[in-house]
Amino acid sequence: MVRSRFDSQLEQLDVEMIKMGALCEEAINASMKAFLENDDVAAQIASEKENEIDRKEREIEALCMRLLLQQQPVARDLRLISSALKMISDMERIGDQAADIAEITAFLKDNDTKSKVHIRDMGIAAIKMVTESVDSFVNKDMKLAKSVMEYDDVLDNLFVEVKQELIDLIGKDKANGEFCIDLIMIAKYLERIGDHATNIAEWVEYSITGSHVKMAMEEGNK
């Protein structure tokens, strides 16, 4: 088997990407638990996960640099490694946003209003997108990557829905104002997580096909 060492290093990269993706899911899960159940321990976990995600980003960066140095990859190998380098930046931002959500929950007064808006659904959608984007990378699954890109609309629509719900709540009672502003921030963070998952899926597309959907669109507009 030629290049077996290189292939085993690429498998190692897949494993590390799965681990980083799993950390992102855990961070979002913990921040949502902190939000929905006023769970301080969960908020603390989200913050710790963010630190772990940052460390994992450094580790994967180092692995990619080593692969570039030692193996001088070309073609699909080069696309895969350069995509991984871009994807970990998005995953690192996902970790930050999960921690930001957890941070807001610490100041959030308990209020049953939060169960009346669709933030929980946004959390579920965001986790689904993150999981599937990383899975699409590891399995080189173009169909799954496309479905992640499309699913971003679901999350965006939920955000619009939540925004309207919060406007209605403020309209009913101005005393809800501060609380609703905190909630819209959380919703916005979840919406951004969806954008990062979409970026990951776009890099998966580049890794598989050699063309990047955004770049292709920009070229088309020229």
């Binding site: 990859p73 070309v74 073609a75 699909r76 190998d77 080069l78 696309r79 063309s211």
Partner: peptide, 14 residues
Amino acid sequence: FSMPKDKRTEDYIT
């Protein structure tokens, strides 16, 4: 070197 069209090229350069 980034997007070879033929699988044999891809296999050789990688």
